[in-house]
Design a protein around this nucleic acid. Sequence first.
DNA 1: CTAAACGCGGACCTAACCAGTCGGATATTC
DNA 2: GAATATCCGACTGGTTAGGTCCGCGTTTAG
Lengths: 152, 152
Amino acid sequence: MLKLTKKADYGLMALKFLAEHPETPAFSAKDLADAYGIPAQLLAKILQRLTKTGLLRSHAGMNGGYALAREARTISAYEVIHSIDGPFFITSCTKGAKSCELTPNCTIKEPLARVNETIAGVLKSISIQDLAEHEPAAAKPAEAHKLVALTP
Amino acid sequence: MLKLTKKADYGLMALKFLAEHPETPAFSAKDLADAYGIPAQLLAKILQRLTKTGLLRSHAGMNGGYALAREARTISAYEVIHSIDGPFFITSCTKGAKSCELTPNCTIKEPLARVNETIAGVLKSISIQDLAEHEPAAAKPAEAHKLVALTP
DNA sequence: CTAAACGCGGACCTAACCAGTCGGATATTC
DNA sequence: GAATATCCGACTGGTTAGGTCCGCGTTTAG
Ligand code: SF4
Ligand code: SF4
């Protein structure tokens, strides 16, 4: 539950790798896959999705491959996840096609939607560049309460 | 992906309901299930889990049922989710039993662990009481960047 | 005392979903 | 035109989430 799909995971890895090598014009799907041991064909499809949503630029033919379409700093983790796995919803009531049938009576829906927004905000605040640079450091979850405006 | 399980969802609903009726000594699983249209037996098992982890107190026999073991204010959404679905991990590398085999090479693991911590923090900052009171209001995702200490 | 109402907990089944694969088509370079 | 590439839909196998069943222990009303 609440797990990121591996596809999104792989996508982030690939984008990070590209961000770390800005001078190289392009990497093929196989290059990227081999760099981490990811199944090549799977990664290929992920990169295609990212291309279609405008995060990557692709070039077929020899010496072709993928490159970032925008600055690493301007690509957020949220965009990557959204591109690969579709819209981001923490609950099953997506309000679109097949939401859970107790949506009308549900009293918990709105608060959770708020939480959903919050998490999305966190994801949006993280750029590929952030992933590429800096080594680990202690997180600061102490300020977490500032984020949630449940009692405005 | 990144979806809350319905079990956790149901658990939160039930706890919220209990928080809204502090005067009533106990509600049976069936009462709670009927109140929302949740499958009774399923809810029952969820409540049992919550009891085992100390969030609820149960009482068998006629007029038995469940009641909050602690103040609604002191029960966080994180505890509920953790009780029902087990430890909270956004990635597949749980570092416990069967993590994904590219954990050693993975360069994205630590940053994501940080994100995981952040989200957990958000969840911890939300209490059952928060869910029970207050009607919807606009979230404030503008301050989201304050939370993520990727560049300390 | 006994039966109804309740919690407890494992086994089980099913549909959905995710990870990964295959096959073929198209585009680009050499 | 051969070698590399991206592109794209269809397919399969494994895992998990959601839900059910059934039998057991406990409490209390009558
Ligand atoms: S409606 Fe309520 S129960 Fe159904 S998914 Fe949304 S939050 Fe969960
Ligand atoms: S190790 Fe890297 S790839 Fe494997 S799950 Fe953790 S983050 Fe995702």
